[in-house]
Every structure is written in structure tokens, then in C-alpha cells.
Design a protein around this nucleic acid. Structure first.
Lengths: 160, 160
DNA sequence: CCTGCGTTGGGCATCGTGCTCACCTTTCCT
DNA sequence: AGGAAAGGTGAGCACGATGCCCAACGCAGG
């Protein structure tokens, strides 16, 4: 498993630059951050391998693929069927991610859909999975804060 | 706003290759997909600009920054205070994303923390925001399905 | 004091990039 | 049918970036 990639301030500054300019070259990044190209290259390769960076899939917007609707479905599962339910969820293409969470609700499922009808179909498909007791679908109507991690990066970088 | 980037099967195949090899070169991708380098380059640049691709931030793992805990906090908000609450949430670095959702619960907040104590502090900080009526914190204990979008990509690519 | 470890600057051959062009095919419009 | 528009192709070219090597330096811990 990906061990904790201990990101030091130097790495953080490189990542901040990358967040601003995803297509920046290694040499360019080195210049911006003020380190030698060799060091920048070493750090980047290391980060790509030690689990600091997630899959490229994260950058692909479902909207662009024709799935403009996002919803979160909470699931209560018959105990001891968690893994079986997870497998069944993984078989649904529109399921992007499944979290096992604490509390009365067992699963939080991140799904996308082409339209409301499609979402209804997917919700039904999930409800039909053996072991699924109860579901609750919440449609995402607005992104009030878009995904960002720069605040934490700046903290690691020693925010100047 | 990013208009829908209509991803065609060719784009999808490029993205699938990129998902497998994030550091692949444009020339390499063109070879793998079986198109000319010129076309691949044009498609990639276009996707980077028309909103098909999300920010690079998405690929940075919070765990690597020293935030191994992930939680989802649901919030009920005093109506008409949504934007004010959203602004206050955006001021919390550990808040990665905020969704406005349908149903009795108004907001779904994605947060990370260094440990449980840290999470408790953040939850308290959120509860103290004027307009926040009720919160409910669910700790993510396991990723039952890791984020993936390849199933949808393969569908777009005309899954062979 | 000495030994690793990471950074540095230099250098080098190769490859990738960004860009331009002429040419071709397909599609759509008149 | 004719013709324009859009997108793919192969070729070419100058420049920069890449991957890799090495000797030297500063700094930490033993």
C-alpha cells in the first residue's frame, strides 16, 4: 500500500506550482521554485512513485464524459454483508467511489448520472443489491466550495 | 463556467492511456492509441483548456500531506444563510470540498484531519459558524471502492 | 572526526515539443 | 452534385526538455 509520502516544504512548493500550471515542464518548475533542475526532477519522480500523487483519473471530469449529475447515496447494509455489497457497487459503472463510514449509515456512495431518469435507474439498481436495507439519495445541486487542497499545501510549504 | 467538453471515443482512449501511465509523453500516447502525434497533441491541449480536465490538485493525496483522516460532515443550515456559511467553510483549510445537496440536509462537507483530536477541533469550528444549525460527522473508515472513472471512460471509448 | 544523504552545477546524447505546411478524407450545407 | 469546412495525417524543423552521469559541496548523525 502507498506508504505516507512525507511531503516536505520543497515538495509542497513544487505541487503548488503544478496546481497553477499543470503542463509546466520540470525545468520550468525548478526555476519557479528556485532549485536545481536535478532536484526538482528527483522530487517529482519520487512523488509519482511513493504514493503522494493519486491516479490521473481524478482529473477527469465526469461532466465532460456526459454525466452532469452528481449524487451521494447513503446506504444501510445488513451487517456482515459489507464486502458483498461493495463488490456489487463496484460493478456499477456510474459508481465512482464508495466510503465505509462510521455512524448509523454504513456506506456513502458517490455516483454520477446523465439525467434524473438515469439517476433513478441507478438508485433502483443499488437498492436491488442483496444486503442493502435502506438507501437515501441526495442530489448535488451546487458546488459551494470546489475541491481544493492548496490551503493545506501552503501550510506545508510554510505559507509565505 | 467550463462548458461540456464533448469527449469522443478518441479522447477517451487517450485518457485511458493517461490513467495507466500518467507520465506518458504525447508521442507515446499517440503510438499507443494508434493516431498521429499531431492529433494526440491537439486533443490533449484542447482537453486541458475546455474543461475536460480538473485541476491538478485532485491528484494530491491529503494523506501524503499528513492528513490521514477523512470525514464527511453534514450540515443543516438556517435558510438564507447558505452563502455565508459556505464562505466560512471555505476559510477552513481542512475543508476540501462543500456540496449543496437536496433533501433535509443542506450541506455535505468533505474534510481531512491529522488525527481524531484535530477532527474534533474542526467539527467544533464548523459548528460555531453562524447559521449552522446541526452537524453530523461521519468518519471514513475504509475505501470500499477507490475513486475510478475508467468504467465510464471505457464506455465512451466504445469498450473493446 | 568521518560517513551518509541530498542538493548542486555541469555536461551530453537523445528524445519530445511546439509549430507549420500540404494533402487527404469525411461530413455537412447549398 | 458541387463545394466548403473540419479534422486527421505525415513530414519537417528548431528548440528545449529529458534522462542520466559525475564530481563537489554542505549538513546531519554516529
Amino acid at each position: 500500500m502507498p506508504n505516507a509520502g512525507p511531503v516536505d516544504p520543497l515538495d509542497a512548493r513544487l505541487l503548488l506550482e503544478l496546481a497553477k500550471h499543470p503542463r509546466a515542464t520540470t525545468s520550468g518548475l525548478a526555476g519557479q521554485v528556485g532549485i536545481s533542475r536535478n532536484t526538482a526532477q528527483a522530487r517529482l519522480i519520487q512523488m509519482e512513485q511513493n504514493g503522494t500523487l493519486d491516479s490521473f483519473e481524478r482529473r477527469i471530469r465526469p461532466e465532460a464524459l456526459g454525466y452532469p449529475l452528481t449524487a451521494f447515496i447513503t446506504i444501510q447494509v445488513t451487517q456482515r454483508r459489507l464486502d458483498a455489497v461493495a463488490d456489487a457497487l463496484a460493478a456499477v459503472p456510474e459508481v465512482l467511489q464508495v466510503h465505509g463510514i462510521s455512524g448509523p449509515i454504513d456506506l456513502l456512495v458517490h455516483v454520477v448520472a446523465t439525467d434524473t431518469e438515469d439517476l433513478y435507474r441507478i438508485a433502483g439498481q443499488i437498492l436491488a443489491i442483496p444486503g442493502v436495507e435502506r438507501t437515501n439519495t441526495s442530489l448535488v445541486m451546487r458546488q459551494l466550495v470546489d475541491y481544493r487542497i492548496t490551503p493545506l499545501l501552503q501550510r506545508t510549504a510554510g505559507n509565505p
